[in-house]
Write a protein that binds this DNA or RNA. Structure first.
Lengths: 192, 192
DNA sequence: TGTTCCATGTAATAAGTTACATGATTTA
DNA sequence: TAAATCATGTAACTTATTACATGGAACA
């Protein structure tokens, strides 16, 4: 159900399904993803249900594009979703399921697994750290210049910058956890 | 696909679908969940495919139970899964999707949302902290007594204790993130 | 006698992935 | 001329959720 609201949220300005997929690939992929084969049918369903309208627009450099824009009903339900309870479904963490049974394999395999896991976390952490460095929180300070345009600039994007910080803090904790695991696995006799 | 291996992993001793659901509710729910309506059909599919066998056993206090046990093929594929790459599908974090659009609502609603989120993390963190306290890592030290029984006790469960620590560290980071968000939202003018 | 727990299943629906099909335009 | 990118879709399949159906045993 969340994907519906993500699409409605991204249509704060008119966009095509292809445009939306670019946004998933570029910035949203840290906390959500959707394939074009899921986006296109859902957009047309939302149009049938009265959330959206679309126009076919010729493109200067490719085939015609179907550009969607959102209607009043979309904004109402979007705001309801934002004001409702935090969406926290059951976590499904595949690598932790593997970890749960990891006692079954050799110490060498256990450590190999954790090193590979750590390296992946490390990569994502480096990427997100670099990204957040480009948007310092200090720029959102209230006694900063450019208070003349209350609607534009800084305030509009604070929430989005904070979503990046979520990844940074989370990944740091997961890297620490890998180190904790490697540390304790090493204290076990190597003959099991 | 992970659920298949979780079921195979849990069948290190003979169990029924109902037994397995109890384990999900009790300890696995921190990183996975499955309903009985998913477990029963998958168990019978895995039996058809030659991973499992089952027997109908009368119960002293209720209807007869179908008890599954795993076969050689199950163990082979289970070990392959454990030695393979860490299973890290695209994260789908609904509350972060909400956060991404949170600029659209009032500061009061934003903070309400984050306080509710923080409270949920706090609850889970308290629960898992209490649980890990019952299984101190020090008990797994290699120069500890009871090295006389190498197969039993401590070593067998270290990986499982470490999966709990994953939750503790992760939730601590998420609580810190909520505090960071609340701190920076408070610095914004209250009139938007 | 009603509620909870034990126990196993099916059916319908929703959400997500992979594969397939089509065709224009741009770039190497 | 071949490959990559732009652009929109359908079909088949897998995974997960919710609702439904059944019936015995324990307990209050």
């Amino acid at each position: 159900m969340s994907l519906k609201f993500i699409l409605l949220g991204l249509l704060d300005q008119p966009r095509s399904g292809y445009d939306i997929k670019q946004i998933f690939e570029g910035t949203l992929k840290n906390f959500w993803n959707a394939e074009l084969s899921q986006i296109y049918p859902l957009l047309s369903k939302l149009e049938r249900e009265g959330y959206l309208e679309s126009d076919l627009v010729d493109s200067s450099h490719g085939p015609r594009r179907r550009i969607y824009h959102r209607l009043a009903q979309a904004e109402t339900e979007l705001f309801d979703w934002l004001a409702s309870e935090p969406d926290m479904p059951v976590a499904r963490i595949g690598y932790l399921a593997q970890m749960f049974f990891m006692e079954k394999v050799s110490p060498k395999q256990r450590c190999g697994f954790l090193h590979r896991l750590r390296e992946r976390f490390e990569q994502q952490h480096r990427f997100l750290s670099g990204l957040t460095a480009q948007y310092p929180l200090e720029d959102f300070e209230q006694n900063t210049p450019s208070q003349d345009d209350p609607q534009a600039s800084s305030e509009r994007y604070l929430a989005r910058v904070l979503t990046m910080h979520h990844g940074v803090l989370r990944l740091k904790a997961l890297i620490d956890w890998c180190d904790l695991c490697l540390c304790w696995f090493d204290r076990l006799p190597k003959n099991s």
